[in-house]
């Protein structure tokens, strides 16, 4: 395919191709609210240049070669930026695929024989399909990395350790407890215990929808680790359903203090730390 005339066509009709292509992209869908006309044009021009260089140097049908490295990198950039800007998959792929129409038109105009036209169009289709698929793949990867990052952020967000009183910490857990999350929670809690020198920690599981053996195991581990460091844990916010599950699963909570509500747990904590809560109205009556 080294005799392909695509590089030549790309070079000769660059300006015309660019105009046609930009028009084509604008027709296909209105994306101006996310990407300005000028940016789109700049992107298209850069792609054209790179494609032309690559096609001149390498085989137009094989995009995995060294010659197309720059093109691939540019497409990675484009799809990553589009993924971040919230473009849909088809909108992202359209960037490459919309180039077909202008290119085919130019091929038809430049080559006299129908046979040549067909051969070149076939080469061009292969080339653009490959590049388009590559764009999609990168788009997908970017989206996946965004999802992974968000998951990580959620993990961070959902495990705050709050100080309730001098020497009393509370850890309200919201959401399902899986291994990696429990690990983070455990580390956070233990670090905070050392930092604040607290001897009591209340783990509130009101926001945990279900408790299975694994979750219970994780909770037990956290409590044991805290105990090893010299802090006591109280588990609170056990809903009726969860209490039933724990018993049915045969989970042995040992001598861990469990309370139905955070208020009850806090009362115990106050007792342990030697505090007494007195209502003012009650004292005035005396």
């Amino acid at each position: 395919m080294s005799t392909s005339r695509i590089p030549e066509i790309l070079r000769k009709h660059e300006a015309a191709l660019l105009d046609d292509w930009t028009r084509e992209q604008n027709q296909l869908g209105d994306i101006s609210h996310r990407l300005s006309e000028a940016d789109l044009r700049a992107q298209s021009r850069r792609f054209l240049q790179l494609l032309q260089e690559a096609a001149t140097r390498g085989d137009a049908a094989d995009t995995d070669t060294e010659a197309f490295r720059e093109v691939r990198r540019f497409l990675e950039e484009v799809s990553a930026s589009r993924a971040a800007l919230g473009f849909s998959p088809s909108e992202t792929a359209t960037f490459v695929f919309s180039f077909k129409q202008p290119l085919f038109n130019q091929i038809r105009a430049s080559l006299p024989s129908a046979e040549d036209q067909l051969a070149e169009i076939w080469t061009a289709t292969l080339l653009l399909d490959k590049l388009g698929l590559y764009t999609m793949e990168t788009y997908q990867k970017t989206r996946e990395s965004i999802i992974a990052r968000q998951q990580e952020e959620m993990l961070e967000l959902s495990t705050p350790v709050v100080k309730l009183w001098d020497g009393v910490l509370a850890l309200p857990i919201i959401g399902t407890l899986d291994s990696s999350r429990t690990q983070t929670i455990m580390e956070n809690l233990l670090e905070k215990i050392v930092e604040t020198g607290s001897e009591l920690a209340i783990i509130d599981i009101t926001g945990v929808p279900t408790v299975d053996t694994l979750t219970a195991q994780h909770l037990l581990k956290t409590v044991t680790a805290a105990r090893l460091m010299g802090a006591e844990c109280i588990i609170s916010g056990i809903r009726p359903q969860i209490a039933q599950t724990i018993v049915h699963l045969g989970v042995e909570l040992g001598d861990i203090i469990t309370k139905a509500s955070l208020a009850d747990a806090f009362r115990i904590a106050m007792q342990r730390t030697g505090h007494v809560v007195v209502r003012k109205a009650a004292t005035s009556r005396l």
Partner: peptide
């Protein structure tokens, strides 16, 4: 035993030594 570090506590628990 005093002043056990969090990492040490976690390790011991993971080793099944409470």
């Amino acid at each position: 035993v005093v002043g056990m570090r969090p990492a040490v506590a976690i390790t011991l628990v993971e080793l099944g030594m409470s």
